[in-house]
């Protein structure tokens, strides 16, 4: 052990600090904090004080953030949206009681993985639409009715929700979909068949459409 007597002898030097911050008092063995973190998430969940649980999953369109409240999946976010920024918005709009808690999202992660491997055509998950209200919410509810491998135009969606002139608002509803992939806004195209926009980027949108075209 390296308790060199040199600074200890001096009564004016910085002896106190390097003595008290002895390496043995500071070092934390690898794995300890992640074990404690997992235990915390587990217990917080059990005691009902974890309002938003999240995990990040690897997919062919990049890392997806999956976040859930006790009611259900509340947010799916592409990497390009900035996961940190998305979590900050969730803290503000839902609750700051947020922890990475992979086990709370085990089922969602499994279904997302099945979807990307072409083995799942519809998601069967509790969904929490509390980040979306009014007309946008109505649009999202309709989107879930567009079948796997099919597409609709923004104008068709507007007609389907009973507001044929709200084509632009349908576009906004799709662009602000808090649950991309799971609520399939990627199945909405321009009337001329071109892609339109997508929260995950146009590459991601065409990847999903290609996946569904092949697997359908």
């Amino acid at each position: 052990m390296n308790t060199s007597p040199q600074p200890l002898g001096s009564s004016t030097g910085l002896g106190p600090v390097d003595l008290v911050i002895s390496p043995e008092l500071v070092k934390i063995e690898p794995g300890v904090l992640s074990r404690l973190h997992a235990g915390l998430a587990e217990r917080a969940s059990r005691e009902g004080v974890l309002d938003v649980a999240y995990r990040v999953v690897e997919t062919p369109v990049g890392k997806l953030l999956l976040a859930a409240t006790e009611r259900g999946l509340v947010r799916v976010a592409y990497e390009r949206e900035g996961h940190e920024a998305v979590l900050a918005v969730l803290a503000e709009r839902l609750s700051p009681r947020i922890l990475e808690a992979p086990s709370r999202l085990a089922e969602a992660a499994r279904q997302v993985e099945e979807y990307f491997s072409g083995r799942r055509r519809a998601f069967d998950l509790p969904i929490d639409l509390s980040l979306s209200a009014g007309f946008r919410r109505t649009v999202l509810q309709h989107l879930s009715e567009i079948a796997y491998g099919h597409t609709e135009s923004y104008a068709e969606v507007a007609r389907a929700v009973g507001n044929p002139r709200a084509v632009r608002a349908v576009g906004t509803a799709c662009a602000t979909n808090p649950l991309p992939v799971v609520v399939p806004c990627h199945r909405v195209l321009r009337t001329d068949g071109s892609l339109g926009g997508y929260i995950g980027g146009l590459d991601a949108k065409s990847s999903l459409l290609r996946l569904e075209a092949v697997a359908a």
Binding site: L87, I98, E100
Partner: peptide, 18 residues
């Protein structure tokens, strides 16, 4: 602008353990 609690665990977990 309250940050997600996760950040607190990441930032201060080690200090609190020490």
């Amino acid at each position: 602008m309250k940050q997600p609690f996760e950040k607190l665990v990441v930032l201060y977990g080690a200090t609190v353990l020490r």
